Computed example of a mutant assay.
Amino acid sequence: MSERLPRPAPIRRPKAAWRQAKGGQAFKSGHAAEWAAAALLMVKGYQILGFRLKTRGGEIDILARRGRVLAVVEVKRRSTVQAAIEALKPAQRQRLAAAGEAVRRNRPALQVLDLRIDIVALAPGRFPRHVRGV
C-alpha cells in the first residue's frame, strides 16, 4: 500500500507594496472627491439621499434629490475638469441609469421623481463643476 504524502501549500505572492499603497491612496482620494461633490450639491439645494449605493446595475456614487428630480451623480476626478467630464462613457451612463431605475423602483417615495444622470467633475486647483443630464 502506498503512503499518501501531504500536498504542499500553494505559493502566494504578496501584493507589491507600491500597488497596495496606490490602491489605498486612490480609495481615499475618491472618498474625498465624493464628499467635496456632496458639499457642492448641498450648497446648490440638493438633498443627499445616499453615498456609494450598490445595485445589480452598478454603484451610484451619490444619490441626490432636488424638487422633482432624482439625480444619480457620478463623481470623476482627473487632471483637468474636461478630462473628468469625458471620462463618463456611454456604457457607464447606461449602467448608472439602470442602477437609478433599480433604486427608484424599490423605494415608493422616489417613483414619482424624474431620473437624471449628473456628473461632478473635479480637478486639482479647480472649482468642482456640476453637469446636469449627461
Rank of each mutant, 00 (worst) to 15 (best):
S2T: 14
R4H: 13
P6L: 06
R7V: 13
P8E: 00
P10I: 04
R12M: 10
R12C: 10
R13I: 14
R13N: 09
P14L: 03
K15V: 13
K15Q: 10
K15E: 13
A16C: 09
A17G: 07
W18E: 15
Q20M: 08
A21P: 00
A21G: 06
K22E: 12
G24V: 08
A26R: 15
F27E: 13
K28D: 08
K28L: 14
G30Q: 03
G30P: 00
E34H: 02
A36L: 09
A39S: 09
L40S: 07
L40H: 08
M42G: 07
V43H: 08
K44R: 14
K44D: 12
Y46S: 00
I48Q: 02
L49H: 02
L49E: 02
L49Y: 01
L53N: 06
L53Y: 05
K54I: 14
T55E: 10
R56Q: 15
R56N: 13
G58V: 05
D61Y: 05
I62W: 07
L63I: 04
L63H: 03
A64E: 02
R66H: 09
R68G: 08
R68M: 09
V69M: 10
V69Y: 04
L70P: 03
A71M: 01
V72Y: 06
V75L: 04
K76A: 09
K76G: 05
R77N: 09
R77L: 11
R78S: 07
R78C: 06
R78I: 01
V81T: 11
V81W: 08
V81P: 04
V81G: 00
I85S: 01
I85M: 11
E86R: 14
L88M: 09
K89H: 12
K89A: 10
P90Q: 05
A91M: 09
A91G: 10
Q92T: 12
Q92E: 14
R93K: 15
L96G: 08
L96F: 07
L96K: 13
A98T: 13
A99E: 00
A99Q: 00
E101G: 11
E101P: 07
E101H: 14
A102C: 01
A102Q: 15
V103D: 00
V103S: 02
R105F: 10
N106C: 11
R107P: 02
P108Q: 09
L110P: 02
Q111K: 10
Q111F: 01
V112S: 15
V112I: 15
I117D: 05
I119R: 04
V120E: 01
L122S: 03
A123I: 01
A123G: 06
G125H: 01
R126F: 13
R126E: 15
F127M: 15
H130W: 13
V131A: 11
R132G: 01
R132V: 08
